[in-house]
Write a protein that binds this DNA or RNA. Structure first.
Length: 920
RNA sequence: GCGGGCAUGGCGUAAUUGGUAGCCGCGCCAGACUUAGGAUCUGGUGCCGUAAGGCGUGGGGGUUCGAGUCCCUUUGCCCGCACCA
């Protein structure tokens, strides 16, 4: 009987769907295991062979855990709001919902062909109103809460109001915007709108003026992680800084917890490090400098991590956007300052980056007083100081900070070294080491002691305080687009009000066009009579990360209309045990999601503080492009080895008409009309193509489609081959040519069960050799799966199969366990063989043999040894190696075998299994 | 510039974690069965050498009886961050 994978795979996929094989319910009698994939954005291009890599790995793990007796939650859904569908709508007028729907069904078809064990009854789509109801709900909860830094917890805003009423805000330690202190009486006297704008400074979801990344081409703002090198990640359009009023999430309030709790999760070190850098905690001090513009005097606060260098401050620098600029600019300097600030404002982020090396700045005309030396020092403005970090103002210590140094050299400002023996004639001395000098009470101290000593003194003198700063900013939450979640917010007398939770979801209105209005308002402004109880509704929509921040919770209880996730469902499924996805979400989704989860945790809606216990980043699968070489000015193509003889142009050729780097010449002639009459210069009768590893993309003709692989080789082959390609976490190019190996393996595996075309298994007792092969396989595959080393597990299957062929083994007691082991990787063929073995339904591990170490012992082998003097040996000795055998060559002493002069050793018999030290 | 990672046959990789380097697969070579093979099976395949033998994990050095693995140094590639005071 032939291995007809097309028929087998289709039949079993239907069987699983019909029987709801992978549907799960909460079941307290079984341990739970939650395996999650990062759900895809359903793009119009469909899946290429690189996309399912992580899905295959997670599916293997899910099936494995099921066999191990776990109740496995393994859901899938779609991150369905997004820019491409909207861009497509702008071009074609087709509604994004329609495009999205179409793309989703294409994705679903492709996913189904690969044989995933998803519980599709739990599917979620972020663009579905019954789903985004809970995105909007979470936003309203954030609106209704503030963050208490003392308690490190989100609390209801109603509690804050009663505190205000009782004692004002003087004792409150909250994460908030710029506020002035007030008493209970002053709070009482505030108008309704004053009270609201005060509360807005405290809310976790708040509306505030901020400098945003504005992308004019897309007509919307972008988050920091959506911008790379001054260009939008999606589309690559230029992005500039602009001040706008935007909804924001107070992610920065959670910075400390987001940082600390990284220690609790099992993620790769590199990913944790990326998050740590993104959060960017730095300890230092805020210091107050008295500044004067000649008429008025102010207290200006700066942040520094090097309080110890305060004796070397020779000037101060403000960011051009700093609010101090206006106050400190003297009339004489006004013109120069205005021009500088204007020029800086005009620049895009990209231009600023490009000019990083250039130094520019302007003097304000004002002077500050060094709180320790009393010296008068000039206050400058320069772009190298960022408005968004610290207080937007710094004390400059050119001797010990390279940026200050460059600036001081450019504008001829004094440089005052503070560390004994350091040379600052060519560059600054940035290292935090050495002995301080010229530094008053700090002189003579080591830098490491001087830093805390300086901060202590700052606090003692009342000129500042210890302070921890974070780079993590609040998340800009407004997008001026159509295809996103609407904000459940309306405006009354210019004040933002939350809608009632009962009125959720607030659905997207229909619009005639998906473009901004002529007056520059977001597309939603086109819905003329869209209102809430007669009041206008917020016109921007939420960003992409809104819908993906809590989807893993919704999977636990996807149909619940009363709450995001019930206490029971959340209590059972708890958190994601294994999350598989790409690194590209390291500083976006994976931060927002953790923030969102912590917020819901504070409110008591979820029981776990961290959402993703273990995270594995699968590597990217790149394309492997092929090239042909055309002699310039002709239609003649020369094979790779001959191309240097001519002046040629390298041209991408479709990898699907190249086999093993050999061009299918007929297919090439048919591929494009231009090549119909192409001529070829061959080597050894063949046309050899060049190749390169590049991103998989249509324009490089290197896209390989999973459907095509399923059609030609089968889903089981695809699954195993993707795993066999190399370590899961490593990036690697796709190369179809190696696929025959795993395909051959499956065909041979199938044939093992047949004799003369008939299914035939022997019920005879297996031989020790056969059992050894089986148990070696069990041990290897189980440990490999647990360690996510899927490539070596596939090798182990191949080795075992080779051995079974050598042994001509067709014993049921060996092959049935083999099926069980393999079924995670190649489920279809295993289901089929399992049925042929006479079992009802899907593969199960009910009578699976336990891994037995006894059968793992390799044959002993002799290890040649040469001695010269003292040796320490660490040997792998078999437990089957009898004491007498060992005694014959060395004298045993517990775990140490001691060589003696009386028993000269020429050889030691070595067997893997146990480590024993041999001291000679 | 800072941080993280990687380097092994023609190719993808493996190596019991300091113990016979190159498992498994691709490709290639030879053979069998075949009208045929993009089917199947058998054998071979790190490099040099007819062989004996020698050389071999990017380069150099070190520790060790022993190093792909540990340490120092150097080169090359990949990823992340980037004026964060």
């Amino acid at each position: 009987m032939e291995y007809n994978f097309l028929e087998i795979e289709k039949r079993w996929q239907e069987f699983w769907a019909k029987n709801g094989t992978f549907k799960v319910e909460t079941d307290p009698s079984k341990p739970k295991y939650y395996v999650l994939d990062m759900f895809p954005y359903p793009s119009g291009a469909g899946l290429h062979v690189g996309h399912p890599l992580g899905y295959i790995a997670s599916d293997i793990f899910s099936r494995y855990k099921r066999l191990k007796g776990f109740n496995v939650l393994h859901p899938m859904g779609y991150d369905a709001f997004g820019l491409p569908a909207e861009q497509y709508a702008i071009q074609t007028g087709q509604h994004p919902a329609h495009t999205t729907e179409k793309n989703i069904s294409r994705y679903r078809e492709q996913l189904d062909r690969i044989g995933f064990s998803y519980d599709w009854s739990r599917e979620v789509r972020t663009c579905d109103p019954s789903y985004y109801k809970w995105t909007q709900w979470a936003f309203l909860e954030m609106f209704a809460h503030w963050y208490d830094l003392t308690a490190q917890k989100a609390k209801p805003i109603t509690e804050l109001i009663s505190i205000f009423e009782k004692e004002g805000n003087t004792k409150i330690n909250a994460s908030c915007g710029d506020i002035t202190l007030f008493t209970a009486q002053e709070w009482e006297k505030m108008s309704e709108s004053e009270k609201e704008s005060t509360l807005m400074q405290y809310r976790i979801a708040y509306l505030g003026e901020t400098s945003v990344n504005w992308c004019a081409a897309l007509g919307t703002v972008l988050a920091n992680d959506e911008v790379k090198e001054g260009l939008s990640v999606r589309g690559g359009h230029p992005v500039e800084q602009k001040k706008m009023k935007q909804w924001q999430l107070r992610v920065s309030a959670y910075a400390e917890r987001l940082l600390n709790d990284l220690d609790k999760v099992d993620w790769s070190d590199s990913l944790k490090e990326m998050q740590r850098n993104w959060i960017g905690r730095s300890e230092g001090a805020e210091m107050i400098f008295k500044v004067s513009n000649g008429s008025d005097e102010y207290d200006m606060v700066i942040f520094t991590t090097r309080a110890d260098t305060v004796f070397g401050v020779t000037f101060m620098v403000l960011a051009p956007e700093s609010e101090w600029v206006e106050k400190l600019t003297t009339p004489a300097q006004k013109e120069a300052v205005d021009e500088y600030v204007k020029a800086a404002g005009r620049k895009t982020e990209r231009e600023r980056i490009a000019e990083t090396k250039k130094v520019s700045g302007v003097f304000t005309g004002s002077y500050a007083t060094n709180p320790f030396t009393g010296e008068q020092i000039p206050v400058w403005i320069s772009e190298y100081v960022l408005a968004g970090y610290g207080t937007g103002a710094i004390m400059a210590v050119p001797a010990h900070d390279s940026r200050d140094y460059v600036f001081a050299k450019a504008y001829n400002l004094p440089i005052k070294p503070l560390i004994e023996g350091c040379d600052v004639s060519q560059e600054s001395f940035d290292a935090k080491e050495g002995v301080m000098c010229n530094s008053g009470f700090l002189s003579g101290m080591n830098v490491k002691e001087a830093i805390p000593a300086a901060i202590e003194e700052v606090e003692k003198r009342g000129v500042g305080k210890r302070k921890v700063n974070f780079r993590l900013r609040d998340a800009i939450f407004s997008r001026q687009r159509y295809w996103g979640e609407p904000f459940p917010v309306y405006y009354k007398d210019g004040i933002a009000h939350p809608m009632s939770i009962e009125d959720l979801p607030l659905e997207l209105p229909e619009v005639d066009k998906f473009l901004p209005t002529e007056s520059g308002e977001p597309p939603l402004a086109r819905a003329a009579d869209w209102n809430y109880k007669g009041y206008p509704i917020e016109k921007s929509t939420m960003p992409g990360f809104a819908g993906s921040s809590a989807y893993y919770l919704r999977y636990m209880d996807p149909k619940n209309d009363g709450t995001l996730v019930s206490k029971e469902a959340n209590g059972y499924w708890q958190d994601v045990d294994l999350y598989i996805g790409g690194t590209e979400h390291a500083t976006g989704h994976l931060i927002y999601s953790r923030f969102w989860n912590k917020f819901l945790f504070d409110l008591g809606y979820v029981c776990k503080e961290e959402p993703f216990k273990k995270l594995v980043n699968q590597g990217m699968i790149q394309g492997r492009s092929n090239f042909v070489y055309r002699i310039k000015g002709t239609n003649k193509f020369v094979s790779l080895g001959l191309k240097d003889k001519y002046d040629t142009t390298e041209i991408h050729v479709d990898v699907n008409i190249v086999n093993n780097d050999k061009l299918d010449i007929d297919a090439f002639r048919k591929w494009m009309p231009d090549y119909a009459n192409a001529e070829f210069e061959l080597e050894s009768g063949e046309y050899i193509c060049g190749w390169a590893v590049e991103k998989m993309s249509k324009s490089m003709f290197n896209v390989v489609n999973p459907d095509m692989i399923c059609e030609n080789y089968g889903a089981d082959t695809l699954r195993m081959y993707e795993m066999f390609l190399g370590p899961l976490e490593q990036s690697k190019p796709w190369d179809t040519k190696g696929i025959d190996g795993v395909n051959r393996f499956l065909k041979r595996f199938w044939r093992l069960f047949f004799e003369n075309g008939n299914f035939a298994l022997s019920d005879a007792e297996p031989t020790p050799q056969e059992l050894k092969t089986l148990h070696k396989l069990i041990g290897k595959v189980e440990s490999d799966i647990e360690n996510f080393s899927f490539n070596t597990a596939v090798s182990a299957f191949m080795i075992a199969l080779n051995e079974l062929y050598d042994l001509k083994c067709n014993k049921r007691a060996v092959l049935e366990p083999f099926i069980v082991l393999l079924s995670s990787f190649a489920p279809h063929i295993c289901e089929e063989l399992w049925t042929l073995c006479g079992h009802e339904g899907s593969v199960s591990a009910a009578s699976f043999p336990e891994y037995c170490e006894e059968y793992t012992i390799e044959d002993t082998f002799e290890y040649p040894v040469s001695f010269n003097g003292k040796m320490r040996f660490k040997l792998l000795l078999s437990k089957s190696l009898s004491a007498a055998e060992v005694e014959a060559v060395v004298r045993s002493n517990e775990n140490t075998l001691r060589y003696t002069a009386e028993s000269p050793i020429k050889k030691i018999i070595v067997v893997p299994g146990k480590i024993i030290n041999v001291v000679i």
